[in-house]
Design a protein around this nucleic acid. Structure first.
Length: 191
DNA sequence: GAATCGATGGTCT
DNA sequence: GACCATCGATTCT
């Protein structure tokens, strides 16, 4: 398994979102590795995408979407939940992929402790849950997931899953093109 | 199983 | 001052 390099993220956001399915998200905290297989993503494009944080140009919050591909973009929604995104497209062009759900693979005990739920099914089957289980917070904004010493990174997968494409979740006025990608067979997809 | 609703704070106009 | 790329508890069918 090899770590995804910057060139992987420096592509069309929809392509990256699709190709991330089946890949392995890893996060090293306190000497422990947490890892999960990505099973659900959403693509958020540049200023032309009405649902993207980039729609109002490079504001303080969204500026990182124009930064180098592979950067970590975390934001808080509804005052409670943090969302993990990976920046895409060449530097200077805005784009990011939201990691919506993973299948937990390593560090299950730590995830259970952080999530405080009994059913493993609800450990990481939603974007807020993924962040809570992994311990990803706003403080992780600006990490470079392609750096050699990055605590958060992605490894390629060996089994590209059957992909289902749908409209994005929670988006009020979405575009016609489907920009949510799900591993059709995974029980860990969000509900 | 589906629908409803409150919690809670960073960000932008 | 309003708006959210959500979750979980509660309240129905």
């Amino acid at each position: 398994m090899t770590k995804l390099q910057r060139s992987f993220f420096a592509r069309d956001t929809r392509r990256v979102a699709r190709d991330l399915l089946g890949c392995r998200l890893a996060y090293d905290v306190d000497g422990t590795r947490l890892a999960g297989r990505i099973v659900e993503t959403e693509a958020y494009l540049g200023p032309e995408d009405p649902a993207s944080h980039a729609r109002h140009g490079p504001t303080d919050r969204a500026r990182i979407m124009w930064d180098r591909p592979g950067m970590v973009y975390v934001y808080r929604i509804y005052g409670i939940h943090d969302m993990l995104n990976l920046v895409t497209e060449a530097k200077g062009q805005a784009g990011a992929v939201l990691v919506r759900a993973v299948e937990p693979l390593e560090g299950l005990e730590e995830m259970r402790a952080r999530r405080g739920v009994e059913d493993d099914r609800s450990l990481t089957d939603g974007p807020g849950k993924v962040c809570q289980a992994f311990g990803v917070t706003l403080d992780d904004r600006g990490l470079d997931a392609t750096a050699d010493d990055a605590p958060l990174f992605v490894q390629d997968g060996d089994d590209p899953p059957a992909v289902e494409a749908t409209g994005r979740i929670g988006v009020v006025e979405d575009v016609a093109e489907p920009r949510r990608f799900v591993d059709a067979a995974s029980p860990w997809r969000s509900r």
